[in-house]
Design a protein around this nucleic acid. Structure first.
Lengths: 229, 229
DNA sequence: TCACTTGTTGTCCATGTGTTCAGGAGTCCG
DNA sequence: CGGACTCCTGAACACATGGACAACAAGTGA
């Protein structure tokens, strides 16, 4: 199995037991603070980029002194990497596989809806990821080369299978995946632009529903599919 | 007319004449160096973000001493803004208007092709813009609120006109514009990801042609249109 | 050539930032 | 309670960076 994480393991004190035989429960304090910090980091990094974010800012947002933050993540890089581990894990938990015997229209619709939902629920993660890629993916390159490539190939194969069996129009499967990725992420990444253009102060749930409807409608038809009931 | 630029005018020495009555041609040296610097800035900012970019880096890439760069752009912010003025002007030069009497399929196809072509020719500009928006558009907010909003409304009106006349499927025109924006820009902004997933070292011209073909194909069909001959 | 503008550059400095470190407080278990 | 370990934190430091500035060089029209 390829290494699935972007962060080299941190020294991570408190991994359960020690050389003494005495057992300590791996601190719940640790757990709680780690989360507070990662949460804050996500917001700061997404707002200011890697370089633009200072540990001080993260610390303030997390309500902790800077030194304390550095106690949990020995340095900035590791923190950034740990954040992505978190995000990728979160994503992995959500996306279900597709199978050749599934209904194409239904599968695509679900995929689109799920992705739009991700844009709604985790816009920060989406933006973070986008910025990372735009800058050449210095941290995620390996992840793209391995996990993501396989992911895409797997899906593309199924799509191709559907095409070969005449169950959808013959469109390039990989490009189709890109199309769905880009158009759905757009609602998270370019939120400000969309809000400005539409002259709205903030998103509402129904905006996402509308977007999802629109995208399934156009893309499915674009693939020669009927909207599922 | 609304102010079309994002940069407050720089002091910009050498604006032609002086208080003395004597006339100087606004230095060609100035012109040349300005361009060298803006070019370098585009590359650096796109690669490292606003904060991550140092004047020193830009200077080195432009082959000038830092002090000289600061002679042309009195500070980092102004430089960043000037760069966007450049980029926006470049874009404005390219996009033609659409008219109600145009053929929908042809107009959309042209639009898509033009945007893909922009992704190919000016990937840095696209990435720069993307990063700026993702981070909340601190510099471009005003531009989004005015110019871009009007731009979208103008196009949307024409699209709606076509829909009302039954010349294309009834899809939300504004969403359609977003869809085209996002899917076409994706090839510039997420270049690394695409290359990694497809296991290619670099783009070739034909990749963009292929992408443009795919997008026109799917999106036009998605709008109930036939591909133009 | 002169008078004046434009262009060039080295130096200097205040500020901000990542990271280290040493010591102290808190927590848990026998 | 005592010992062992986890958690916390203020102070200090080395270093990078944006920008000011003053002196100097080059260019330009008369």
């Amino acid at each position: 199995m390829t290494n699935n994480s972007v962060a080299e393991a941190d020294v991570s004190a408190g991994e359960g037991n020690n050389h003494n035989g005495r057992k300590y429960r791996p601190g719940r304090i640790r757990e709680r603070n780690r989360e507070k910090i990662l949460q804050a980091a996500e917001e700061e990094f997404a707002l200011n980029g890697y370089k633009g974010t200072t540990i001080q800012n993260i610390a303030e947002r997390a309500g902790l002194p800077k030194s304390n933050v550095l106690y949990y993540f020995s340095n900035k890089k590791r923190m950034y990497a740990a954040m992505f581990d978190d995000i990728l894990a979160r994503w992995n938990r959500v996306f279900s596989d597709i199978r050749p015997e599934d209904d194409p229209a239904e599968a695509l619709a679900t995929f689109i809806r799920t992705k739009v939902e991700m844009s709604r629920r985790y816009p920060l993660a989406s933006r973070l990821f986008a910025m990372e890629i735009i800058q050449g993916a210095p941290f995620l390159l390996n992840h793209l080369r391995t996990n993501m490539r396989e992911w895409v190939r797997g899906r593309a194969e199924v799509l191709q299978h559907w095409i070969d069996n005449g169950r959808m129009a013959p469109v390039d499967p990989v490009q189709l995946i890109f199309l769905i990725w880009s158009s759905t992420q757009h609602y998270a990444d370019f939120q400000v632009q969309i809000l400005m253009v539409e002259n709205k102060a903030e998103y509402e749930k129904r905006d996402f529903d509308h977007a999802a409807d629109f995208l399934t409608d156009v893309i499915l038809r674009g693939c020669g599919l009927e909207k599922p009931t």
